[in-house]
């Protein structure tokens, strides 16, 4: 299985509604694309994406996604991500076919994406 990695700039998804954005992401991921979205998904968008992913699972070729949002902050505290004590929020979201990647975040907040080939 081969995967391609697409970096999606903000202007590409910024014009979409929630439904359009979700449909776009799922259609790309189901074509074995690993997406790195510059315009990170909000928690509501993530939940909607999970819901729609469940509807697309066929249990053979597509069993779900890997989803990871991360922030540009100096640490990985939840409060920094969702802005309880600051207004900072996630800046990138990675969405990939479930089998495509392993995503690991270390204690320094560095994200490693291991692509499974």
């Amino acid at each position: 299985m081969s995967y391609s990695v697409d970096f999606i700039p903000e202007y590409e998804t910024g014009k979409f509604s929630l439904v359009e954005k979700t449909r776009y992401i799922l259609s790309q991921v189901m074509r074995n694309k690993i997406l790195i979205l510059e315009n990170a998904l909000s928690p509501e968008e993530e939940l909607y994406l999970i819901e729609k992913t469940m509807n697309k699972i066929d249990y053979r070729n597509f069993v779900g996604i890997k989803l990871f949002s991360f922030d540009s902050g100096e640490d990985n505290r939840f409060s920094k991500i969702f802005g309880k004590s600051s207004k900072k929020r996630s800046t990138y979201t990675i969405v990939a076919p479930n089998d495509a990647v392993s995503v690991v975040k270390d204690e320094r907040g560095i994200l490693s994406i291991r692509i499974n080939v």
Binding site: L67, F68, F82
Partner: peptide, 14 residues
């Protein structure tokens, strides 16, 4: 740091 936890908490906050 499972994304599902962050997603749930973010939605509860929202």
């Amino acid at each position: 740091f499972d994304q599902v936890n962050f997603t749930i908490l973010g939605n509860l906050e929202h």
